[in-house]
Write a protein that binds this DNA or RNA. Structure first.
Lengths: 110, 110
DNA sequence: AATATATCTAACCTATAGGTAAGTACCTTA
DNA sequence: TAAGGTACTTACCTATAGGTTAGATATATT
């Protein structure tokens, strides 16, 4: 068997890992994407699914995720208001990352 | 084909994703693990591989990673000093995460 | 008329992650 | 003798991510 050493590029600002971390590296970002996952979920449900996050941060993160097209938002003109969030295709593409975070946690952190 | 909806637990502090993020969620943490990867690497090399990181932060992150047993450190009693870092088994287990971050970046951020 | 619900908005505050810059110790090379 | 390489350490500073609290809105319910 031959040794086929992995070549690792310098991680300058064009490094894919680094670019991903710029968008996904927040304290709550990947957790929010994980919780939305493949469902359509209302703001209030989401909040209850992530104990400890503040409303301000959750709203802000959601706005950023919508602006970056990870999440799609649908508001209904109802009272009381109803707002639904779901992942875009790009957002769905982040799920393998959180799957690996989950697998790592399960296998190494208990 | 049956619908088999994924069940998603509430992400309290015991959530595996959340626990992983506590340890790996720093600005540089996963990038450092990615750069060490499967090689044995000296401090100075590592620094050159991550343009923009400060010495203080790199040293500090490395110390934390060693304390958390993601990274093993070997110092040689030489002058000038030589210190080598490599991933432990636990550290190697984080590579699938950075692989997914890399894949995501390549496919979605260019 | 008071309370509850749901989704935000806004003002304010702070802890800390991270940045900057200088210094240390020892040897090598020019 | 002076500059450079190597792996740090220390002190100081600051920007900002994130926390806290209160309020807005507009209906329905009691």
């Amino acid at each position: 068997m031959e040794e086929t050493p992995k070549i690792i590029m310098q991680s300058d600002i064009n490094c894919p890992v680094r670019k991903s971390l710029v968008l996904l590296g927040g304290k709550w970002t990947l957790l929010i994407l994980f919780q939305i996952n493949e469902r359509t979920i209302r703001y209030g449900e989401l909040k209850r699914c992530i104990p400890g996050i503040s409303e301000k941060v959750l709203i802000h993160e959601l706005n950023v995720l919508v602006a970056n097209e990870f999440v799609a938002k649908k508001s209904y003109a109802e009272v009381p208001p109803r707002v639904e969030y779901r992942l875009t295709d790009k957002g769905l593409n982040t799920l393998p990352i959180v799957d690996q975070l989950a697998a790592f946690g399960l296998h190494n952190l208990f």
